[in-house]
Design a protein around this nucleic acid. Structure first.
Lengths: 130, 130
DNA sequence: GTTGACGTTTACGTTAACGTAAACCTCGAT
DNA sequence: ATCGAGGTTTACGTTAACGTAAACGTCAAC
């Protein structure tokens, strides 16, 4: 029995918090990534909506398309479906993990490259100071 | 005195190796990311060109725009410039490193999320087998 | 000498992810 | 009553990163 404090957010609150525009949030809804409630006309966002938005933006920072982010978010959903569907889901999850690990390797290579560049630049600065 | 074996590549060789189209490679040239030699009309790519291409594609996998990739690649260049320029370069390098570290954190969070999803899916499978 | 395989330029088309603007409602405060 | 701050829908515009196609050159092979 978890007593969930039913806190809610307006669209502009979320926009401010994450540094995006309301247009962007509505666009995500249009693409089926968010489905807020309505109080009359007005959209009302739950903490769960907020989390979904957070995940979308995280995916974006990693270069994922909205479709990819949606797929990843849906992976966490109540795993409903038959055995075959569940097995396919497991495969997709694993495939995403592999992709993320490849990104990790890419980042490390790029970081090493930047370390090198930084060192060379500092060396060039030492040279300038005669 | 390093004896550089002047190996060269055709555009379709590079396209094949990296699983992209020749159109893409020409597009990168158009955007100033590659500047191959010409044998008559025909483009001829050096091993250095190949490396640049590799870096572009690595950046792409990390969600970087071509402009960002160009910036990163240029960071590795012969650090020419005065002290002020070199210092600004150092700042940009450091800023990129911070961004990459943030991406690392994002990836770890997402990996943890996927691990969780995977476990839950496997649990759902066990449930199915009664 | 024509036919492929490979190269080139030029140019219009496409998709994702929003930006921008107009035109309108709603409500609490002045 | 009006006004400003927020909300809404609708719709056209924009940018990046290529795709696609046409129209042409070149050269080794048949």
């Amino acid at each position: 029995m978890s007593t969930t404090t039913a806190h809610s957010y307006s669209i502009s609150e979320l926009a401010q918090e994450f540094g995006i525009t309301t247009r962007t949030i509505r666009f995500y809804e249009d693409k089926g990534l968010l489905t807020p409630q309505r109080r009359g006309q007005t959209r009302v966002y739950t903490p769960e909506d907020r989390v979904r938005l957070k995940l979308i933006l995280r995916g974006k920072r990693l270069g994922f398309s909205l479709d990819e982010s949606r797929e990843i978010i849906d992976m966490y959903d109540p795993a409903h479906g038959n055995v075959e569907q569940l097995n396919r889901l497991l495969d997709r999850i694993d495939s995403k993990r592999q992709q993320l690990r490849e990104q990790q390797r890419d980042i490390e290579k790029m970081l090493a490259q930047l370390d090198d560049a930084s060192a060379r630049t500092r060396a060039a600065l030492k040279e300038q100071s005669k």
